[in-house]
Design a binder for these strands. Structure first.
Lengths: 209, 209
DNA sequence: ATGCTCCTTGACTATTCAGTCAAGTCAAGT
DNA sequence: ACTTGACTTGACTGAATAGTCAAGGAGCAT
């Protein structure tokens, strides 16, 4: 579930071409599949000429990578805070689910439909190709699983959930999060996000809040 | 998780053009994203001339729809059997997970990598477009959720799992299944399928087997 | 033999695609 | 004033795209 930087377009008149392209890529790749977003689409959205596009980025894929990398850098501090060891373990997971719901709600209001998670969509699309795009999604999955595993490890140590393999449980949670995002996008419903915290707690054998 | 009809290509020399196109679509759309599979690709794979393609199908999208519809018709009897009321509720869910693992394992051997679920991939790709393609995935999700909800309702009635809203629990299970398929495709690993039965039982509060 | 239907062929269409490139502009440094 | 580097422009390239269409072939019925 993504960062808040899609609020940036409002100030985009003040940004340079490169940043405008990054923002355009982020938005268009969230709404549409990678293969259907053309370089012309990106340039139009960013109000940048195609020659400038290729000055800043070697290729469409390079722009996509840079955009996703930038969004991760944006998102990471929020995740570090949510998953901080200063936050009780189960609350970390609740907050992560709440962050997702908050972002998706804002996006749905902005675009008139539920968008789901751009990492998931990109990953599924590029899924069978060994390439840079697929590894963007794979890497994000690993990073989130790392946060989740640490929280689960702590929750087990504190006796808040039944014992189990933290890495395996984290992978299950990640699958549930990924699937909820896909479901939300496909069905244009916020329900999967609204129910995610409860579902994660069930999966972990944690008491409902 | 899909049908077994992708074993059909071996006999494809005996099939008519239309069927060959349906089989080609199924295979190519499983391996690749819809937008990257061109009509030329489909015709080449099916050894059918483009003019013949358009004789049989109005458009690329029409072929995709027909291919997915055919696969559903193929898969449904197996699902009816697995989710039959004659099968104990939790065993239905275990068997569904086992079917998924079986199909994915066979596919991985055939293609040298894990393919995940074509419905999920198509759905994510077409996610934000209101069109026929997105509803293919949405419809499949609803159908599977219906099976799951019935099994869950029965399991609750038999006291095998704690009480809860069957439709909501079914949706959670469906999210987990969808996410596991996406995860498997992105990471090229059968692990998500291998752990799915256990994860579903956890989600439902069912005892491990 | 003729007509009809279904299917196939192969060339075609206009548009789009990712990417190229020479020339131009601008600001900063010398 | 001149140079340089960063950036922009706008036209271009060859290939690919979904879809079109006239003509032909084959099988069947009359």
């Amino acid at each position: 579930m993504a960062g808040r930087s899609a609020h940036a377009p409002a100030a985009e008149a003040c940004l340079d071409s490169r940043q405008r392209l990054l923002a355009a890529a982020w938005e268009l790749l969230w709404l549409n599949s990678y293969a259907t977003v053309s370089v012309d689409d990106l340039c139009r959205r960013a109000d940048v000429n195609k020659g400038s596009f290729y000055h800043h980025f070697d290729s469409k894929a390079a722009l996509a990578q840079a955009a996703f990398a930038q969004q991760w850098e944006c998102l990471r501090p929020a995740l570090d805070a949510i998953f901080s060891a200063q936050v009780p373990p189960l609350e970390r997971i609740d907050r992560y689910a709440a962050l997702g719901l908050e972002i998706q709600t804002a996006k749905a209001q902005e675009f008139g439909r539920v968008l789901g998670c751009p990492w998931t969509s990109l990953g599924c699309e590029a899924g069978c190709k060994d390439g840079d795009l697929r590894s963007i999604a794979a890497q994000k999955g690993e990073r989130v699983s790392r946060y989740l595993a640490a929280a689960i490890r702590d929750a087990i140590a504190l006796g808040q959930i039944p014992a189990g393999d933290p890495d395996e449980l984290a992978a299950m949670c990640q699958a549930l999060i990924t699937g909820s995002a896909a479901q939300a996008r496909i069905t244009d419903s916020l329900q999967p996000f609204a129910r995610l915290a409860g579902a994660l707690r069930r999966l972990l054998g944690a008491p409902a809040t």
